[in-house]
Amino acid sequence: MLKRLRQLNRLILAGLVLAALGLWLTRPQPLAPDALDGLAGDPLAGAAVFAAAGCASCHMAPGVVRGDDPVLAGGRRFASPFGTFIAPNISSDPEAGIGGWSDIDLASAIMRGVSPTGEHLYPAFPYNAYLLAEMQDVANLIAYLRSLPADATPSQPHEVGFPFNIRLALGGWKLLFGTRGWTLDGALGPQERRGRYLVEALGHCAECHTPRNRLGGLERGLWLAGAPNPAGEGRIPNITPGGLDWSEAQIVAYLQTGFTPDFDSAGGEMVDVIANMRRLPEQDLAAIAAYLKLVPPVVTAAAEPSAGN
């Protein structure tokens, strides 16, 4: 009997140690407090980072068209297999927005997915891409965000049910699926490296264009090979050379104007993406095109000829 009790004690102890280890491994890990030390944010340069990172596409109020000084009031809804995420207010309002956050709070949210109160943020916010961003770019972005108009609309809670509403578990998600480095590795020239930075880090293109596993982790072996639309019908296109046969000039023209090579126009989420992309210098768009040509081609079954309007 005594022996049994001792065994049980040992089992409980082992369980507690494992649980503690798990909690430690999956703990929210903000940036070091001095991560931004010595970096002055330049709001003008930050505007370009903001455009490349596509912040406005999600954080503007629903139905608002992108202008020069977007109001980041939040409220857009993003349906997914895990529930509906509602983009928060990240305007400069001190109460409803991020006006009251410190620079390092913001940088930790952007690059580590950790809130100022030390909670995990949902990866609907693409920190899993932004963690590859350069610290100077993030400092510039923060300076620019602070220059944008304030809006007092309160953020709404996400509509996410059990078990996905347990934020503690997001640490496990980060441990399993967190970005460890560049997906396209190897010897790249300066233009291709710039393109990789814009696509993999700031532009977070893979968030939509790469398929996910059942737990929402990116299938990196099918990088940019297209994915089901998480919000419902249709697919997000394959933009590897196996799915997109446009020339680099045609890709640049599309990102600048929204016109495909046969002068159809972009639709859906790409309209907001293009509203950001056309604000970037042409050499950045050319860098994106050069990078896309280097991505391992994935051939997907030819889509049915699409019907028009």
Binding site: G63, V65, G226, N229, E233, G234, R235, I236, P237, N238, G243, G258, S265, A266, G267, G268, E269, V271, D272, I274, A303, E304, S306, A307, N309
Partner: peptide
């Protein structure tokens, strides 16, 4: 063109 296609045209299967 895009403003209308953004909201009112169904995504295709590409």
């Amino acid at each position: 063109c895009g403003a209308c296609h953004q909201t009112y045209r169904k995504r295709d299967d590409g």
